[in-house]
Design a protein around this nucleic acid. Structure first.
Lengths: 335, 335
DNA sequence: GTGAAAGCGCTAACAA
DNA sequence: TTGTTAGCGCTTTCAC
């Protein structure tokens, strides 16, 4: 078959005997052509192995781009991985392509990424960070495309927001732990020097304890990343300083699982001697001897809802500016 | 400040009093301009807040694109997440942008993704699948850009290959388990109906056992995905059928950790009553009571090496077609 | 229902 | 060292 490597609209037009404008209309499915023409064009496109050139389309007149930029803290995170998986799958199903970035909880990284992204004139942007730099905001303004802030809920989003309140998550867990009669309560978290949502949950947690007449008795905030092993040794360090703790709230389930492993190794019983609670509802917790007290985060739904909201906005369909995706505190039996 | 939202080369050229061609040359840093001109152009670009239009650049003449397409099995995988994190970070540092896709071990998904990608005329493509469909291969040919196959090592890659031999990983673990004197050896894996690398490791494993005069005594190959909990219940199911097993090789560490949890819950001692081995070298294993016998996969290095190899190829620098990234069998103490 | 013409911002090729 | 010209493939606008 003597086909050129990259047949364009013109190639199809020539074959069918119409103008490339007609071919363009058919292929985008707007209307304004006869059924007969459509059939012939589609057949020719198939036969020629036509691949649309999105570069040209997006370049010519912006607004026709199907490119969405998504920036998450890290690409190797259990929770964000799920969100991204679902977000990307949904966007792909709806005809959009995803360009990614990672900011590692550093506003400066997000800023650098978004400037690189802007060069591609994307149709929309999805962000997950706690704070944006002034320059990030100004670049976003200049881009003038839909922006979706995900993960933490914004009451006054740049444009759209899908998520839940991390503050409330922390508050709610504080009440649960306090109601269980725990008195000397510790906190363990990681990445203390970055702008993480864990810190927001801690604020809510403090507030919740405060309302119950309690406070965080001791805390271990590592500069290391949250993870299984950091949960393990942070528990060791915290208990060395504050042996009489009767509960620990962890930044996430991985840390809590690591903590559980330490406690088990030391013969400290959960929840008899000490209660533990995590956050995230991660799969790893499914194998603990007792069901972990934690907050389930519906990562898959979050990604899907975010993608759908964004696409609705792109198609000028009605959308809520702020969409809450409910988390659920699972009582478990470790508190 | 009365600046247009999107100043182009012409805006800079006007401000400096040169032609936009000169501006283009300066900004791409090739050479062919005076130091004085360069300074003025850079200053003007800064002042105007110039954002290059990569769409236009890539569109005009392909070959100037900085877009790299990367397709992994899933975006929410501990191992691939790390690879992607490192790959993306390295590409970003070298000035490339990443468009992602997920194929979920389905050649048809990879095919659909690559056709969508082709529309963006990327500079290069990174693949991680075990098999490509005929149409995927033909699309790749038409794209005529560098292709890097990652994860599993290809002896005859389409273009470049970076990775290690999953087959050898399985073989090596078989020898280790056999040498430890284990006789009745089981295997547990997931996603049995998909084209995963786990199946390749199993083939190597069988071969290794065979060479030691052994074979897989019993196996549990789930249709479910590998994970902590599937490892837990697969172990239960397998031992119900074959109670006398004295070792189990798991598709990955998460399954092995789940298995360990089941064994602990049943009072079955590791490695006294039964030995276990995993694969991947995942962080979660760090909290097990004994160091897990497993194969460490250097995910971060893999991503970095892959990105660098690809960029070398893009810059017409010399590169090896096939680069081995060594895995390491960690004996541990669970076998 | 269909076509012709203009132009998006950039870069390769060639000219000065 | 710098400038001019042409054109990438598509979509919008306007005409028929």
């Amino acid at each position: 078959m003597a086909k050129r490597p990259n047949p364009g609209l013109q190639a199809i037009a020539d074959r069918v005997g119409v103008s490339k404008m007609t071919v363009s209309r058919v292929l985008r499915g707007g209307g304004g052509f006869s059924a007969e023409t459509e059939a012939k064009v589609r057949e020719a496109a198939d036969a020629l192995g036509y691949v649309p050139n999105r570069l040209a389309a997006a370049f010519g007149r912006s607004g026709t781009s199907t490119l969405v930029g998504v920036c998450v803290p890290r690409l190797n995170s259990a929770l964000f991985g799920s969100v991204l998986e679902s977000l990307n799958a949904t966007l792909a199903r709806l005809g959009y392509d995803t360009m990614i970035g990672a900011h590692d909880h550093l506003p400066s990284e997000e800023e650098a990424w978004i400037r690189a992204l802007a060069a591609w004139k994307p149709a929309a942007v999805v962000l997950t960070s706690r704070e944006h730099s002034a320059r990030t905001l100004s670049t976003l303004r200049d881009m003038s495309v839909p922006v979706l802030e995900m993960w933490d809920l914004r009451t006054a989003p740049i444009d759209l927001s899908v998520g839940f309140s991390h503050y409330d998550n922390g508050w709610e867990m504080a009440r649960t732990i306090a109601n269980a009669g725990r008195q000397r309560i510790g906190y363990i978290g990681g990445l203390a020097e970055r702008q993480t949502m864990g810190a927001v949950r801690l604020n809510g947690f403090r507030k919740g304890l405060d309302e119950a007449g309690l406070s965080v008795f001791a805390e271990e905030r590592l500069t290391d990343r949250p993870g299984f092993y950091s949960g393990y040794y942070a528990t060791e360090m915290l208990l060395a300083r504050a042996p009489k703790l009767d509960a620990i709230y962890y930044q996430d389930d991985e840390m809590a699982i690591g903590g559980q492993a330490y406690l088990t190794a030391r013969g400290i019983r959960v929840p008899d001697d000490i209660g533990i609670a995590g956050w995230g509802g991660m799969e790893a917790a499914s194998i603990l001897p007792r069901r972990l007290t934690t907050t389930m985060v519906p990562t898959t739904r979050l990604g899907k809802v975010a993608a759908e909201a964004l696409v609705s906005r792109l198609r000028d369909a009605p959308v809520q500016d702020v969409t809450v995706v409910q988390t659920r505190l699972v009582p478990g039996s470790t508190i």
